[in-house]
Design a protein around this nucleic acid. Structure first.
Lengths: 338, 338
DNA sequence: CTGAAAGCGCTAACAG
DNA sequence: CTGTTAGCGCTTTCAG
C-alpha cells in the first residue's frame, strides 16, 4: 500500500498541499466545500496524518512519558490506568517505561523520554533513586514533570500523593483505640520518604496516646509475604511481646497473619493486624485484613488533571508547584476488630 | 535552555553536521579522534538526539503500540509488564492504549498507532470486537501485528495464547477425577473464542468420562464476584443439584465459594470449585482456590520475542503466521481437594 | 479564501 | 576519512 500524504490528496484535487493541510486541520479560512472535498478524498485514499512529521514541525508530540517502577504491582498499574484514561480523553498518548526499581534503568527511561521529545513526564521514583535522580535535568530543561506517590523530596515540582503520615497515624490510632498496646511496625529498610512518613505517623500516634516507643517493635526490611512471616517468627523466637502489627503494605500483613495463625495466635483476638494499600485479596481472605486505601485510580486521574491544567496555563515552571495530598481511607476489617 | 542539534556540535568543532551525525552513530568511516571529540562536545552541550527527526527520516520509530482492554486487570498489566521488559531490552518503547473493552475506543487506539507510525502493534481484543475489528487495516497496510490471549479468529496473524480448550478440559477432568459428578460451568455471555474454548473443553471432558451434559448446569453471564454469588443463589433457589463449579475466572469462583459458605455448603467437601487465571488472592483465601495459571508474564515475553523475531526476518507477512500456544497449569488447591 | 516557500533535525546517497 | 545535498511530511508565515 502506497503511503498517502497531503500531496497526494492535493494532486487529486488540483489544489496545493497547504490548502489540504489547512482543510484537514479545520482552519477557519477554508471554504466548507474545499474541506468536504479534502476529507472525502482523504478517506477514499486511506490517508493517515503522519504524527511524526507534525511533531517535528510543531515541536509538540502529544505524548506523555509515564515512568513507573513496575507494572505487575497492582498499585502502579491502577494508577497508570487512571492516567491513561484521562490523558487519552485529552488527546495525549502514553509512552510507557518501567524502572524495575533500578535507578540506572530509571535514568535510561528519562533519557528515552527526552530523546522522544515527550511533552511531559509523569513518574513515581524507584526504590534506589537518591535525591532528584535523573529528574533534575528534566526540570532544568523546562519539560513539564509531575510525580505521584513516590516523589523525590529534593525536587520542587507538582505531585499527587496520599498523606502517608496520616495513614500511619490512623492505622496506629485505630489499633490503640481497639485496645492494642504493644504495636509492632514493619517498615522498609530503604530511605524512602513515604515509608518514613508512615513511620512518623506511627510514632506520633504512640506519643499522642501516651504509649512508649520500643525499638524492639520497629522492624525494617524488604516487603513481601515471606518477610512478614519471617518477622513474626523472629519476634516470637526472641520472646518480644506484642499484640498488634502495622505493616508497610498488605502482602507483609498477609504473611504476618499466616504466621500468627501457624503459631496458634488468634487474629484479631490476641493480635491485631493492619496493612497498607488495600490489595484485592485483603477483603477476600479470612480474617479480612484491615488496611489503608491509597485511592489508586483517583491518584492517576488527579495527577493527569493537574498536569493538563498546568500544561494549559503554559509556563509550567513559573507557578509555585501544586502538591495535591489525598487523604487515605482507613478500612477497618476483621483483622483488627475485637 | 537552547535546543542543541548536531549543527551546534558541528559549529563548535568546525566540521560538518554530517560528520557529527556519523560520529554519533558510530559509523566505521570516522576517525576515533573525531568520534571522541564529537562525543565530548555532545555531552558538554547536553545534546539529546531528536528521535522525532530521525524517525521521520528513517521511517522507523522504534515504538510498538500495545493495545489492551484495561490495565487495572492484573492479567493485562502482568502481560504488559512482560512485553515492556523484553521490548525495552531490544531498544523499543511502548506506546500504551486501553480499549476499555469498547470496540469504538479500540479503533481509536489503532488509528492513533497508525498516525504515530508505530513499528508494530501488539494487542488483545476488547469484548466487543467483532471479526477482525479495526485490525484488518493494520495487516493490509503491512504493519506488523501480533495478539496475545484474545486474538480475533478472523485474522491470520501471529499470536500467543494459552490452550483454553485444555484449560477447560483439565479443570473439568480434575473435578471428575475427584469424584464430582454434577459440574456447573459459569461462562461469559459474550461470544469470545477463548471463552468458547473453555466451554468446549468442559463439554469434551464430560463426554470423555461418560457424564451427561445438562443445560441447567451451564450458566452464561458477566464475570464478577457478585455474579458468582448470584449464580449460586439462583441454582440453589431453583433446586438444581450440583456438586462442583468451574468458572471462567477467579473472581466469579470467589463469589461462588462465598455464597456456598453462606448457604452452609462446605467447600470442597460438598461442592468443589475451580477458577481460572490464578489471581493473587486464590492462594491466600481460605479455602485456597484451585485455578488455572495463564502464565501472564511469560505470555508477554513470548509475544514480544515472537514479534521481534519476525521483525528481524523482515517481510513480516510473507511467512505463515506462527501461533504459540502455551499450556495452562492446573493448580490444585483446597477448594477442589477432597 | 488559496498558494508559495521555508524549515523542524535528522539519514543516507553521492562526491571527493 | 569527511563534505554536499536532498529530502522525510508536515506547520506556518508571508503573499496575493
Amino acid at each position: 500500500m502506497k503511503k498517502i500524504t497531503i500531496l497526494d490528496i492535493a494532486k487529486e484535487l488540483n489544489i496545493t498541499f497547504s490548502t489540504v493541510a489547512r482543510a484537514l486541520n479545520d482552519h477557519p479560512a477554508i471554504s466548507a466545500a474545499t474541506k468536504k472535498a479534502v476529507r472525502e478524498t482523504a478517506d477514499r485514499l486511506g490517508y493517515r496524518p503522519n504524527k511524526v512529521a507534525s511533531s517535528l514541525r510543531s515541536g509538540k508530540t502529544k505524548i506523555i512519558g509515564v515512568l513507573v517502577p513496575r507494572l505487575d504491582v497492582s498499585f502502579f498499574s491502577s494508577v497508570v490506568h487512571g492516567i491513561e484514561g484521562v490523558m487519552n480523553e485529552n488527546g495525549y498518548t502514553i509512552l510507557l517505561y518501567q524502572s524495575q526499581e533500578s535507578a540506572k534503568q530509571e535514568n535510561k527511561g528519562i533519557d528515552t523520554f527526552l530523546r522522544s521529545r515527550v511533552d511531559g513526564i509523569i513518574a513515581s521514583i524507584s526504590l534506589e533513586t537518591e535525591g532528584a535522580g535523573g529528574y533534575g535535568e528534566v526540570k532544568e530543561r523546562g519539560i513539564p514533570l509531575a510525580f505521584f506517590d513516590r516523589a523525590p523530596q529534593a525536587l520542587d515540582v507538582p505531585s499527587v500523593t496520599i498523606d502517608d503520615y496520616r495513614g500511619g497515624f490512623m492505622a496506629t490510632e485505630h489499633l490503640i483505640k481497639s485496645g492494642y498496646r504493644r504495636i509492632v511496625h514493619i517498615n522498609g529498610y530503604r530511605n524512602m520518604h513515604i515509608f518514613n512518613e508512615r513511620l512518623r505517623g506511627y510514632l506520633d500516634a504512640l506519643k499522642q496516646y501516651g504509649l512508649p516507643v520500643d525499638e524492639n517493635l520497629i522492624v525494617k526490611g524488604d516487603f513481601s509475604l515471606e518477610f512478614g512471616r519471617h518477622c513474626v517468627r523472629d519476634l516470637l523466637a526472641k520472646g518480644v511481646e506484642f499484640d498488634a502489627v502495622f505493616t508497610l503494605e498488605d502482602f507483609t500483613a498477609m504473611g504476618v497473619v499466616q504466621e500468627l495463625k501457624a503459631a496458634g495466635k488468634r487474629v484479631p483476638k490476641e493480635v491485631g493486624v493492619v496493612g497498607f494499600a488495600n490489595e484485592a485479596f485483603t477483603s477476600l481472605v479470612s480474617p479480612t485484613v484491615s488496611t489503608l486505601d491509597q485511592r489508586t485510580v483517583e491518584m492517576g486521574e488527579e495527577v493527569a488533571h493537574l498536569f493538563l491544567k498546568l500544561l494549559k496555563k503554559g509556563n509550567y515552571y513559573s507557578h509555585k508547584p501544586e502538591k495535591i495530598i489525598l487523604e487515605p481511607e482507613l478500612l477497618i476489617r476483621e483483622s483488627s476488630s475485637r
